[in-house]
Design a protein around this nucleic acid. Structure first.
Length: 495
DNA sequence: GTAGGGTTAG
């Protein structure tokens, strides 16, 4: 057969001129569509405000189309349903669906159901969403993964919903729906989000058994979820990675940084270093973040020689260490008791245009305090303020622990009072130490004074402070009954 | 199309 469009313009003209039966201008498909459009426009124009008169929407639809003597279109129904969902008119949805199901003859487009299922989900009406899904066939609609996915999104939003998934999947099979990659993806996402990585792997395997190829994003997601497992004992990340690589997975920078972080968290710094070696072998240049994590891991393992090698290597590769890298490195120096070298790093960093931050200073302050060099610690604290780096609770705690550790209890008390006046703090175990120390030196009165101040400032004393005070109260005649009740009452109100 | 991911202490 020759299509009209394939004919020459002159022949088309000929056919129109010599048609055997003239076509009625009122009965064409074109005319019907025109009328339906007119009816739809009139529905849109005259539709009542859904907030006040939602019950009038459906009659308006029926009226608009009957005026133009045409059947209502799926778009008109979708318009009415969208209007109702926008204003959350749950009760008025059912009659519209009923008419759509029993009166209309057209095949209802699936997207109408996907939209409604999503709407029910957003309002936690899971059962409504499920019921509608089961009803889809009755609307002369062949459901696909589109509406199934809409329902899966709803179910994956809650633990109770997730439990219903197996039943829904079986039912979908009966309904003739073919699971798509996107459906598997939704399930895997949900399982990873609740930490059920084992099940997520099962689903991925099931997906590949269904003829789908390896999906890089799903692989990465499962790998990163494995790395985030709280109970990481026995989690074989490298084993999984190897298996996936055999199947053609090419891990990227983020995959490897997840693995490195996992190793370092487990205290396996040298394994993390091996990951970097593996990366280089695969032609991926690890970035400064990977190196910083590995440096941290190696230092935690106490292998300072390796740490220096790692630091040199990153420089050779042309990577620019940033404040994180320097902090890790300086921390390593301090662990080796090379505080002077650490302090010198501050100047080198500044020369290289990398400003030391609060953490840099806290690391060095702690090292100085641990060495009993309180005077230099105070100097450094002044210096950091001058450099525009603010102190935090941790800074104060380091100083207080330093003063207390050096046995300078009087200084410690002064410092603690300063903290209570200046620093917003809810709890600080160092305060307990000071109170404990005072009690053990027979200075229970001073201890009591500080405790009162703590309670005034809404700072909760810990068990150690209370215990020390109770034990020393017997030998201290100055602690009267009223003092105790005065202390205990506000304590009850503490968080 | 890109970003994401890393540091003290408790």
């Amino acid at each position: 057969m020759v299509r009209a469009s394939a004919l020459k313009p002159s022949s088309k003209f000929f056919m129109r001129k010599h048609r055997k039966w003239p076509v009625s201008p009122y009965n064409t498909r074109w005319h019907q569509i025109f009328n339906q459009n007119q009816a739809f426009q009139s529905l849109k124009k005259s539709s009542p405000p859904p907030e006040n008169q939602p019950h009038l929407l459906l009659p308006t639809l029926v009226y608009s189309f009957s005026t133009y003597n045409v059947d209502p279109t799926p778009e008109a129904y979708h318009f009415v349903l969208k209007t109702l969902t926008k204003t959350s008119q749950f009760d008025h949805i059912a009659p519209v669906l009923r008419r759509l199901e029993t009166v209309e003859k057209f095949d209802t487009p699936e997207h109408i159901f996907a939209h409604l299922i999503g709407f029910y989900g957003r309002w936690n009406r899971t059962q409504d969403a499920i019921d509608l899904f089961y009803r889809i066939l009755r609307f002369r609609c062949v459901p696909s993964a589109h509406s199934l996915n809409a329902l899966l999104y709803v179910l994956c939003g809650s633990c109770e919903g997730l439990k219903l998934v197996p039943e829904i999947l079986l039912r979908s099979h009966v309904m003739g729906i073919r699971l798509e990659e996107s459906s598997f993806r939704i399930l895997i996402d949900a399982l990873c989000a609740i930490g059920k990585v084992g099940y997520a792997i099962d689903i991925m395997n099931c997906m590949m058994n269904n003829g789908y190829g390896l999906n890089v994003k799903i692989c990465s997601l499962i790998l990163s979820s494995m790395c985030e497992q709280k109970d990481s004992e026995g989690v074989d990340v490298m084993g999984f990675l190897g298996e996936m690589q055999k199947l053609g997975f090419c891990p990227g920078m983020m995959d490897y940084s997840n693995v490195i972080r996992f190793m370092v968290k487990q205290g396996r710094g040298l394994d993390a270093l091996n990951v970097v070696i593996k990366m280089k072998g695969e032609g991926i240049k690890p970035d400064v973040i990977c190196y910083t994590m590995v440096l941290h891991g190696v230092i935690t393992e106490g292998d300072f020689k390796k740490a220096d090698q790692v630091f040199d290597e990153l420089l050779v590769l042309g990577l620019v260490p940033d404040v994180y890298t320097y902090n890790v490195y300086i921390n390593g120096l301090c662990k080796q008791n090379k505080v002077e070298s650490g302090l010198m790093m501050i100047s080198s960093m500044e020369e290289l245009g990398c400003k030391p931050n609060l953490i840099t200073y806290n690391i060095l302050l702690k090292a100085l305090c641990n060495n009993g060099e309180l005077r230099r610690a105070r100097e450094l604290m002044r210096e950091m303020t001058l450099n525009g780096v603010g102190v935090n609770l941790q800074t104060h705690r380091i100083m207080l622990d330093g003063l207390f550790g050096k046995g300078d209890i009087e200084e410690a008390c002064v410092f603690m009072e300063e903290m209570l006046d200046k620093v917003l703090v809810r709890f600080c175990s160092s305060f307990d130490e000071v109170i404990y120390g005072l009690c053990h030196r027979g200075l229970a009165c001073k201890a009591m004074e500080l405790l009162k101040k703590m309670i005034d400032k809404n700072v909760a004393p810990g068990a150690k402070a209370w215990e020390a005070l109770l034990l020393s109260s017997g030998s201290e005649p100055s602690l009267e009954e009223t003092t105790w009740t005065g202390l205990v009452e506000p304590m009850v109100a503490l968080p």
